[in-house]
Every structure is written in structure tokens, then in C-alpha cells.
Amino acid sequence: MSEETYDWVRLLQENRDDVLARWTEIVRGSLAGRMSATESSHDLREVLDALLAGQGSTDVRSPSYDGLRSLLAELSRTRARQGFTPTETAVSVFALKEAVLGLLQASGDLRGYRAFADLSGLVDELGLFMVETYSATRETVIAEQAESLLELSTPVVKLWDGIVALPLVGTLDSARTQVVMEALLQALVDTGSEHAIIDITGVAAVDTQVAQHLLKTVQAARLLGAECIISGIRPQIAQTVVALGIEFGDIQTKANLSDAMLLALRRSGLDVVKSGRGRG
């Protein structure tokens, strides 16, 4: 047996079960019981087979590693979604080095060390690949959360038959305004409401873009066959709107929600009167 032919592929093939056992042990230890032994040994066996399928190539991007990359990508995505840290994710492949090193120390096999050096570089690259996939997945998760947060913060409430209200609170940026406006228009259609009140009492500031979105919403609502009333315009916002030269045109505005509600009721052909039986 010559030195040259003894590469890491042979090293791993000849000691497959031993390596797998050591590898599984290390990974399990680092994940502190968050992954069952059977689960991790099954995953790792698949990874090892895919690694051996590359026939010793040290190029992570080579087509012979397609299966390996998709396995590791899947593993990284799963870990990212389950809330593992990047270290806990990449350790799955890094631990292979430790396992092989442990094996070499135990057997005192000197030939193996040169083979190990090649394997080591490859494993490092695979680890980086896992971290990359991991962070890409985390970014997707964060984006999804931001989106669901947007939806959470846009409650369209029914005030009366045919009247819905959209109370806006906090900072209105362009993206959020767009989402809430779409939600409002959809609610008008879904509930068959002809009147909408957009209450901006809780809005800190209105800039040109947000005001434009408000105007566009009112215009879009008219195209559907519904009228909007904007209520709760605080003095500072009214001044900003005038200073920015934003034309609210023929859009109905009211100082507060109750005035807007009364207007919407009257437009629906209803009125609010004292019953005479009250104590007021």
C-alpha cells in the first residue's frame, strides 16, 4: 500500500463505523440533548455517505457534492428555524474533524494525518457553507416575522353595520401605510361597508409620503364605492400638512373619532337622538 493512495476517503471508508460513533457522540454532546441520538446519527450517516460520494474532491462547489450541499443546506435551514445558534449548526460538520483526529490519536496511524489535512480544509469550507445557509434562513425568518407583525398591527374594526374604522397607532412608514391601506380596502369589500374612518390620533407624524398614501387610499375607496373620513388630526399634524403643501382636497376630515362616527352614521341615513329615558 503506497502513501499516495491512502487519502481521506479511504481513511473514512475503512473506519466508517468508528468515525460515525465518535462523530455522533461529539455532536450530541454539543447540542446538549436537543437532538436525539438516532436522529443525529441518521443525519450524520447520510452526510458521511454524501461526503464519500465526492470521491476525494476538495472543491465544495463540484457537482459530485450536489447531494452533500443539499443535505447540509436542509440541515442548516432546519436548525435555523428550530432556533439553534450558528455554532450549534456548523458543529455538525466541524465535529467530523475532531472525530477523525480522535481516531488517529487512538490508532497512532501516521499515514492518516496527511489525509486528515486535506479533509480538514474541505470540512472548514462545508462549515462555512452551513453558516451561510443558516444566516440566509434566519433573514427569511426575520422578514416573515416583520411581515406578520405588520399584519398584527393593522386591525380594521367594524363600528356599525356598513361602517369600519382603522385606528392607526405609532410611526407610519411607507411600507406599513401601504399594508394597512390594502387591509382597509379589502375589509370594505369583505364586509360590504360603504363608510371607512381612518383615525390617526395615535400617529406621531405625517410626512408627504404618508399623506400621499392616505390620499390614494381615499381615492381607491371611492373607486370601490365607499367613502373615507379621516379623523384625529392633531394640531401639529394639521400644521405639517399645510406647511408641506399637501392638498387634502375634498376629503372629509374630523377632529375626533366620535364626530367622524356621527358623520358616517348620518351618511348611512341614521341619526343619534336622546331617548328621553336616559338620566342625562
Binding site: 380596502l185 370594505l188 361597508s193 390614494k216 381607491a220 371611492r222 373607486l223 370601490l224 364605492g225
Partner: peptide, 24 residues
């Protein structure tokens, strides 16, 4: 008119002024 259509029309700059609209 569908909400998505209305939003797009407004963005396009068309407000169909003078045309009456109703939900259904």
C-alpha cells in the same frame, strides 16, 4: 371593482372622476 385594481388605477393616475361607483 377589486381593491387591487383600485389601488393600481390610483397609482396609474386614473380616478375615474365623475363616474359613480358602488360595492356591488
Amino acid at each position: 371593482m377589486q381593491p387591487a385594481v383600485a389601488i393600481t388605477l390610483v397609482e396609474l393616475g386614473l380616478t375615474l372622476s365623475g363616474v359613480r361607483t358602488a360595492l356591488d
